[in-house]
Design a protein around this nucleic acid. Sequence first.
DNA 1: ACATGGATTATACACTTGTATAAACCACTC
DNA 2: GAGTGGTTTATACAAGTGTATAATCCATGT
Lengths: 210, 210
Amino acid sequence: MTRPMAQNDTVEAFLDAAERLLITIGYAGISARRLAEEAGANHGLIHYYFGSMEQLLIQVLERFTSRLIARQTAMYAADVPFLEKWRTAMGYLDQDFASGYPKIWLELQALAWNHPEVQERLAQVNAQWRAVLTEALAKAMADYRIDTEQFPVEAVVALAMTFQEGIFLERLGGITEGQVELLDMIDRWLVRLERAKTDGRHEHHEGALS
Amino acid sequence: MTRPMAQNDTVEAFLDAAERLLITIGYAGISARRLAEEAGANHGLIHYYFGSMEQLLIQVLERFTSRLIARQTAMYAADVPFLEKWRTAMGYLDQDFASGYPKIWLELQALAWNHPEVQERLAQVNAQWRAVLTEALAKAMADYRIDTEQFPVEAVVALAMTFQEGIFLERLGGITEGQVELLDMIDRWLVRLERAKTDGRHEHHEGALS
DNA sequence: ACATGGATTATACACTTGTATAAACCACTC
DNA sequence: GAGTGGTTTATACAAGTGTATAATCCATGT
C-alpha cells in the first residue's frame, strides 16, 4: 500500500467537484476539463482514476445515494411519534434546498432518464426509501388506528413519496405557492391524529378530513 | 408573402424532431446535426430559421407549453362533476406516458434548472396551470362542503400539483409501486364525497379519512 | 423568358469534447 | 543514492460542437 491517502483525496476532490457542478450548471454542462478545474486537478486523472466520465458520474451517484439512504433510514428508524419524524423531515426541506441537495438528486434523476444503468441504481434507492417509509407509516397508521382497507399502506406511502418528489421539483422550478399552506395543513392533520390517539377515544374519531 | 407553407413546414419539422429527441435522448444529447438529421433537413437551416440552438429549444418550449395549457384549461373548464374531471385527468396518464408527453415536459424542466429564462417561462405555465386547478378545486370544495379553514384551497391545489408532478417523476424513473392503489384510494374518496353531496345530508358527513 | 429572392446546400471556421499516452515528478525502500 | 512505482503533468488525437457564409436551387411574378 503505497499512498492511499493521496489517492483518496484526489478521488474525493473529483466527486465533490462533480456534486458542486451538478448544483451550479447541471450534468449536461459538466465536461472533463471543467470538472478537473473545479477539483483543482489535472483532467488526465479522470482517465487514471475513473476510466471515463460516465464511470465517474456513476461513482458520484453511488456516493450520493448511499448518504441519502443512510439519512432517511436514521430519521424514520427513530422510536418517536410519527408526527415528530415528519416534522424533522419537513424541517430538513429548507436547509436541504440551501445546500443544493435536491438539485443533485434531481440532476441525477434527469441523467437516469437517458441512461438505463443509472436508472436501475436509482430504482434501487427508491425501493429502499420506500421500504423505510413503509415501515414507519405502517406503524404510524396502526398507532393512529387508520382503516387500512380504505387507506392501504402502499397507497399512503406512494402519496408521501410523490408528495416529497413533487415538492422538490416545484421548488427547483422556483415555485413555492401554496406549499406553506400545504405543510401547515398536513401538520394540523397529524396533530389531530396524534391527539385522538392519546385521548384514548378510539372507537370512532371523526373530523379527519371534514 | 413568398412561400410561407414551406417555411412553416421546415420549422415545424425541426420542432417536431426536437420533441422526438427530447423523448428518446434528452435535451443534453441534442446537437444541431443530430437534430437536423432527425428533421430530415440541413443543419444550416437552424441558424437560418432560429438563429441558434437555444432559441430553437425555447420555441419548442413555447409550442409545447401552450398546448399543455390549452388541454388543461379545456379539461377543467368543463361543466361536469369534479369526480369526472379528475377521472379524465387520471385517464390521460397512461396514454400520455405512451406518447412521451411527460418526458418532454420533464426534460424541459431539467433544461430550465440551468437556464433562468427558460425557468421563467415554465413558472408562467405553472401559474396558469395552478389558476385553472384552483378554480376547479374551489368549486369542487364548495360543492362538497369541505371546510376551507382546515383545508385551504391553496393547500389542496398545491397537494394536487405536487401529486401530479411526483407521479410523472416516479413513472419516468420506472417506478409504479403503489400508484394504482393510490389512484384507487383517491377515486374512492372522491366517490364518497360525491355521494355525500347528492345524498343531501350535509349537516355533518363523517368518514372522509377514518 | 427572365430576373427576383426566399429556401436550401455544402462547406468552413474556431473551439470543445472525451480519451489516450509518454514524460516528468517525487516520496519512498533497499 | 540509485532505483522503484504510484501519481501527476503536458500534450496529442480524432471526432464533434455551434455558428457562419458563399454558392446553389427553384418557384414565383413580371
